[in-house]
């Protein structure tokens, strides 16, 4: 019944949304505030219940949608995420920290105690886990919004889709598809720049780096079925990259998520082997 569609739209009009922060730079939450023109409409269509970056008060759970930013890096966070999962009907992770561990997950390949001794005058006050891990390593996650930072348009799309009861139009294919749809010349083929576009998920809003004549850095993490080995072979045999370059290229915002992780580990071993020789 068409009439029911209207009702559904209206009834669902007041989604209770909350945003939670874990170990992160706040950049993703800031992207929500950066929506500026859309922010009032968003606040009108939903009930933004818990959002420390924008509001002081914190209305009580449960929430229809909980957006989670940041990785799990401390024992306290490990506890808190379980509680939040119980309070949110739908839990959506936003950004590289929450979906892959983020830049701080680089510690997972290093000695955290040593870092603490180097950085803090009183390291005994620091309570931290040895690793920084994505939210999905701890609780069930309903949906992910990738990116470092997220594309605010994706967040708006997700909320809009939920309000209308439709699937969100968020793709998981390679960045190349979007790059070509946008009509950008390929920086890899035409200029030999090692571009991670073929293994990276679309989402940055129209192939941002290639639009600026730069190679993709992989901020949106691995695409649906990336062929890391083939791209790596091409980068090393044709585009002058060595094992160390490959490792560094993959260990950035999304280094700790598979299959970027496995590939970077492989290049690390290769790098070590070549040093030993």
């Amino acid at each position: 019944m068409p009439g029911q569609n209207v009702d559904t739209l209206r009834r669902q009009g007041k989604l209770k949304i909350a945003a939670f922060k874990f170990t992160s730079c706040d950049g993703c939450q800031l992207q929500i505030l950066n929506l500026e023109d859309d922010l009032l409409a968003l606040a009108g269509a939903t009930d933004i219940a818990f959002f420390l970056e924008a509001r002081r008060q914190a209305p009580s759970p449960p929430y229809d949608i909980g957006f989670v930013e940041g990785s799990i890096s401390t024992p306290e966070e490990e506890e808190r995420i379980g509680q939040i999962r119980r309070e949110c009907k739908t839990l959506i992770t936003i950004g590289a920290c929450a979906t892959s561990g983020g830049i701080q997950a680089l510690r997972n390949w290093a000695d955290v105690d040593e870092f603490c001794r180097c950085v803090y005058p009183r390291p005994e006050h620091i309570e931290t886990l040895a690793t920084a891990t994505p939210i999905a390593a701890h609780v069930f996650v309903d949906y992910e919004l990738r990116g470092c930072p997220i594309n605010p348009a994706d967040l708006l799309e997700l909320v809009s889709a939920t309000l209308a009861g439709r699937r969100p139009n968020i793709s998981t294919h390679s960045l190349c598809v979007e790059c070509k749809r946008s009509g950008y010349p390929c920086v890899m083929v035409a200029q030999g720049k090692p571009c991670l576009g073929p293994v990276t998920q679309v989402g940055c809003g129209g192939a941002l780096c290639p639009s600026m004549n730069r190679a993709c850095y992989g901020c949106f993490g691995p695409m649906e079925q990336p062929n890391m080995a083939s791209l790596g072979r091409w980068f090393t045999s044709r585009l002058g990259q060595d094992a160390r370059d490959m490792k560094r290229m993959l260990r950035t915002f999304n280094g700790y998520i598979e299959p970027f992780k496995q590939a970077s580990d492989r290049y690390e071993q290769e790098e070590q082997r070549s040093k030993e020789q």
């Binding site: 209207v6 409409a41 009108g44 439709r166 998981t172 294919h173 598809v177 749809r181 649906e224």
Partner: peptide, 24 residues
């Protein structure tokens, strides 16, 4: 793809190139 904007009741239908290399 059909897209909507928040609780607004306008719907836009857009066509995009698709590739047989994507999962979708």
């Amino acid at each position: 793809e059909d897209s909507t904007y928040l609780a607004d009741e306008n719907i836009t239908r857009t066509r995009y190139w698709e590739s047989c290399f994507t999962h979708q």
